[in-house]
């Protein structure tokens, strides 16, 4: 058994273990036969949403890291995460207006927020692609993404500031930015499954292009890679994945950075391996963190997105330290 094969088995075991544990852990007592089905359904939805958010972020991380040829790139680099957050905040601020009878009948009320996130992310993506044009350099894309992020974050900051004068709205916005996957239901799953699962599958069609891009744009082009097309679609799929992740899980940080980084030494840098590995690894990581969020006794709300970072940063540091000791800076 080689290192890579073993890694796949471990990934699958950790993921399966997380799924089983995730179904068993919660406030409710599963021996209560009347409620068992309800509890399991709740936990299954929560589990599914956690896994999808993690998978989307980790896969998005692999895509941008390949695109920018930088293992420190994170999916939020394109500005779509900030755009999605802003979209959510705008919807929250308009919540009363939107819910006062003018709510479209076809849209479940709980999807108003996710749809706001998606629209925000897509608007950010359109802006990014319009500003950078057809064949802008990677640096232009990077700078534009950074500036769009800053812009959206500051507009979000303005909204938060205005909202703080309204106690309930202020609380709602803070809760939204720290929100996790609890209470997410089948509507959220139905929204995210195609975007994350099929999105990753289709994004895999660029795996070899991204491998080629590791050698630099000129060399990639010389061996037949349509660099403009790779860039366009890597951006579009990253945006789609992160939008889905924010829509169902809020701001979950660090997954897109840490999971691919942790996996590279084991499965290698080739995208055909790395993307599916990151998909599983991201799902497993967020599912386990969400279990942690459930079992740690706290008075208030333990925000999933903050805990991923609290747990992720030490793991990341450990990996870095180990890599540095072994003289292998992946």
């Amino acid at each position: 058994m080689n290192r890579s094969g073993l890694t796949w088995i471990i990934l699958l075991l950790v993921l399966t273990g997380g799924m089983i544990t995730g179904l068993l852990v919660g406030d409710g007592d599963l021996s209560d036969l009347a409620l068992r089905e309800t509890y399991l359904k709740l936990r299954l939805w929560r589990l599914g949403n956690a896994g999808l958010a993690g998978a989307a972020l980790a896969t998005g991380g692999v895509l941008v890291q390949g695109l920018f040829r930088n293992p420190l790139a994170s999916p939020s680099i394109l500005g779509t995460t900030a755009g999605a957050s802003l979209g959510g905040m705008v919807v929250l601020s308009l919540w009363n207006v939107l819910l006062a009878g003018s709510m479209p009948a076809w849209l479940p009320a709980e999807l108003l927020l996710p749809v706001g996130c998606l629209l925000g992310a897509w608007l950010a993506l359109m802006l990014l692609m319009t500003v950078t044009g057809r064949d802008a350099s990677v640096i232009t894309v990077l700078l534009t993404g950074f500036i769009l992020s800053s812009l959206f974050l500051s507009v979000g900051g303005l909204l938060t500031s205005f909202a703080s004068e309204d106690f309930e709205l202020g609380r709602a916005i803070v809760a939204f930015t720290l929100r996790g996957v609890e209470a997410k239901g089948r509507h959220h799953l139905a929204l995210a499954v195609p975007m994350v699962v099929l999105g990753t599958a289709v994004a895999m069609s660029w795996a070899r292009h991204l491998d080629a891009l590791l050698t630099g744009e000129d060399e990639a082009r010389s061996i037949g890679v349509d660099v403009v097309a790779v860039r366009r679609w890597a951006i579009i799929w990253t945006a789609t994945l992160t939008a889905a992740a924010v829509a169902i899980g809020g701001n979950i940080s660090f997954v897109g950075l840490m999971v691919p980084h942790a996996l590279r030494p084991f499965v290698g840098v080739e995208h055909r391996q790395l993307m599916p590995a990151a998909f599983l690894g991201g799902a497993a990581f967020v599912i386990w963190v969400d279990i942690l969020v459930r079992v740690v006794p706290t008075r208030g709300h333990l925000p999933l997105g903050v805990v991923t970072r609290l747990v992720g940063a030490p793991i990341f540091l450990y990996l870095l330290a180990r890599a540095a000791r072994e003289g292998r800076m992946a």
């Binding site: 000129d218 060399e219 010389s222 037949g224 290698g268």
Partner: peptide
């Protein structure tokens, strides 16, 4: 297209930008 052109013209750059630990066979 880039792909068709690559069938006809091969290029050896002076140096490569590749820093990732891709195996030689993969390269």
């Amino acid at each position: 297209s880039a792909r068709e052109r690559a069938h006809r013209v091969a290029y050896v750059p002076q140096r490569t930008a590749l820093t990732a630990p891709l195996s030689v066979r993969s390269v």
